[in-house]
């Protein structure tokens, strides 16, 4: 997925000299190809995220197409006000790239872990929120973000969980969920984003024969499609590597609650920081987001949801 990201960025920069990459002194090795092929379009803004995001707004005003890269624990969180005032308020075509979302930096602790970014960005008026699940979605999201010519936050989570799509995707339609698996209609629909699409798919293929939808575009989100999926299923299970407050689960529950109330289970990070240090899979387990914990919760949900 990181290769797909780098490839897409280089491709855009080569075809459009107005594309600039700004990084807050992050992205070691990731940007080697970019720096080799488009050195004049690469700006290391230093460890100074506020100024970097403000500058990106200025560069967009001057006619450039800035892509601003940081860890998702810093971009968007640390610079949320710059995103709101300097970029979103005027609909400037700036793409904010938040890498390492969720528990990617499992060993480094709370400063580098990021389970708040979707909630923070969803609420900024005029800011789109993208969250690709695999390399195919990444490629489509990058193309979509560039073509949209508006403020976009692109969330990059755990990148090595394997493909959820078997081939490259058609251009994204704003807000459309992508069905990655058909399932039995008397089971809940699994709606997931980012790294958790793989988990949802594994469970659907191995234990619970449910339909699975991936959500590369968290905002906007096609409410009519969400309502159709919810209506045709036995409740909805939403999975994300993000707080259950304000993320995709909340977005789905808002739509379903307003238009077609059915039970929604939000599987994500509860209202707590990580207690311990360990591998990525260890931390998923600590937060109840590993395969077995998720499966158990889904079985309980099915058991308590009338068909």
């Amino acid at each position: 997925m990181r290769d797909a990201f780098s490839d897409a960025l280089v491709r855009l920069a080569v075809q459009d000299p107005k594309v600039l990459l700004l990084t807050g002194d992050h992205g070691y090795a990731l940007f080697d190809a970019f720096r080799n092929q488009c050195p004049a379009q690469y700006i290391n803004a230093g460890i100074a995220e506020q100024n970097m995001v403000g500058m990106a707004a200025g560069l967009a005003r001057a006619g450039f197409r800035p892509f601003v890269y940081g860890l998702s624990a810093f971009v968007p969180l640390r610079v949320l006000e710059q995103i709101k005032l300097d970029i979103a308020h005027d609909g400037l075509p700036v793409v904010l790239l938040g890498d390492g979302a969720g528990f990617v930096y499992s060993h480094l602790g709370t400063s580098h872990q990021s389970t708040e970014d979707i909630a923070c960005t969803r609420v900024i008026a005029g800011l789109d929120v993208l969250s690709p699940a695999d390399r195919h979605e990444m490629t489509a999201c990058m193309a979509h973000a560039y073509a949209a010519r508006r403020p976009v936050y692109l969330r990059m989570g755990k990148s090595d969980r394997g493909d959820v799509h078997s081939s490259s995707l058609a251009p994204l339609e704003a807000g459309r969920m992508i069905q990655v698996r058909a399932g039995q209609l008397d089971l809940p629909a699994f709606i997931a984003t980012g790294s958790m699409v793989r988990t949802a798919l594994d469970i659907a293929e191995q234990q619970v024969d449910a339909g699975v939808w991936s959500v590369p575009s968290i905002k906007p989100l096609d409410a009519a499609q969400v309502v159709r999926v919810a209506r045709d299923s036995r409740g909805v299970v939403v999975l994300e590597e993000h707080s259950t407050y304000g993320g995709l689960g909340s977005a789905i529950a808002e739509i379903v609650g307003e238009h077609n109330p059915v039970r929604v289970m939000r599987i994500g990070v509860s209202d707590r920081f990580s207690e311990h240090c360990g591998t990525y899979s260890y931390l998923l387990k600590e937060h109840g987001l590993d395969h077995d914990c998720v499966l158990e919760r889904i079985r309980m949900f099915i058991g308590s949801t009338p068909a």
Binding site: Q50, M52, G54, M55, A57, R61, A62, E81, D90
Partner: peptide, 28 residues
């Protein structure tokens, strides 16, 4: 959004960075 005003400021410390970005863009 008012023609003639270049930045949305009032929250302090924003406009200068936007200006730095505009200056970098003009230079490029």
């Amino acid at each position: 959004r008012i023609p003639g005003l270049e930045v949305t400021s009032g929250s302090l410390g924003h406009g200068f960075s936007v200006g730095v970005g505009i200056a970098l863009g003009a230079r490029k």
